[in-house]
């Protein structure tokens, strides 16, 4: 069994609004999977359907080879985007409660909570009320709550929002460590730079639909074939006038050139050399953002600019 989560033809509408439209995707086991897209793309609804918080109108969702049930629910750790805590509860009671609703036994919970309190340096706040804690500390508690039952799959919806850089780094280390233990992480965000650093598999969503899916390496390779960076003594208009050029833009004294699909790269180079002096030439590794914008365009979906 090498699929952690698979969705087949999943749709969900709220009244007339289609939140998710015929979504099919599969998250391989052990992957750091990025579910990406702008706000309102349908990411959170997708995740809520995976978590069986909202039910799909149609389609099938399988988790670790089964439909979601009580047992699988206890094997997932979920950090929602909208997250909070009971403000009047003591930290320690709160952690035990969150472990209890994942059916972690009392002794097991004590051991794990103990362990995490040390890792997160929260021990001095054990008997304080959640109210008295800083935002950052509250987020650490939410994170402990997500993993206290040692889940096989972690689903994190905008996990870094509102975190300071130190805690972002701390969290990232935990995610990497978690993954090294063979666990699956679904990472949901609209901040593409974060995803680019962490994920090895992604699914891009826009306007309720999937527009791109695959491994990060594969996607970059696919898109880089058409993307070149050249340093040349010519104007932008000159570069745009070369054969096979679909797009060109100036970037730090060089040009990033996108070739029309199927255009011959050697042909483009030869013609460029005939006319201008080329100082440097390289294949450009595309930014995730560029891949995204390109994919949105070619899918014919007009969309908001990503932040």
């Amino acid at each position: 069994m090498d699929t952690a989560i698979s969705l087949t033809g999943v749709s969900k509408a709220f009244g007339k609004f289609r939140a998710v439209d015929n979504l099919t995707l599969s998250v391989p086991r052990g992957a750091m999977f990025g579910l990406l897209g702008p706000n309102g793309a349908g990411k959170t609804t997708t995740i809520r359907m995976i978590m069986n918080i909202t039910a799909p109108d149609s389609g099938d969702i399988q988790i670790l080879g089964h439909p979601m049930d009580r047992r699988t629910q206890n094997r997932i750790g979920y950090l929602p985007e909208e997250r909070g805590l009971y403000r009047k509860m003591k930290v320690i009671d709160h952690l035990y409660f969150l472990a209890a609703i994942k059916e972690v036994g009392r002794d097991e919970a004590r051991r794990r909570i103990d362990d995490w309190l040390d890792k997160m340096e929260l021990r001095p706040w054990l008997n304080k009320k959640v109210d008295e804690l800083s935002k950052g500390m509250q987020q650490k508690i939410q994170f402990i709550a997500t993993i206290v039952h040692d889940p096989d799959i972690l689903i994190l919806d905008e996990p870094f929002s509102g975190l300071d850089p130190i805690n972002v780094a701390l969290m990232r280390d935990f995610f990497v460590e978690f993954r090294q233990r063979g666990k699956t992480i679904v990472f949901c965000t609209h901040v593409l730079e974060q995803a680019e650093k962490l994920c090895d598999e992604i699914c891009l969503m826009a306007r309720s639909r999937k527009i791109l899916e695959g491994s990060m390496k594969e996607l970059k390779r696919r898109y880089s074939q058409d993307l070149l960076r050249i340093s040349v003594d010519a104007s932008l208009a000159d570069v745009q006038g070369l054969p096979g050029v679909a797009s060109a833009k100036a970037l730090n004294g060089t040009f990033v050139v996108g070739l029309t699909p199927g255009a011959d790269r050697r042909e483009f180079l030869r013609r460029a050399l005939e006319r201008y002096r080329i100082d440097a030439f390289s294949q450009k590794e595309p930014e995730l953002e560029e891949i995204y914008i390109d994919a949105v365009k070619s899918a014919g979906i007009e969309d908001r600019v990503i932040e």
């Binding site: 206890n74 950090l79 929602p80 909208e82 805590l85 939410q142």
Partner: peptide
């Protein structure tokens, strides 16, 4: 539970 934003954490379990 809603205004605390804890409810989604709870309904995940």
């Amino acid at each position: 539970e809603k205004s605390n934003r804890i409810v989604e954490i709870i309904v995940a379990s």
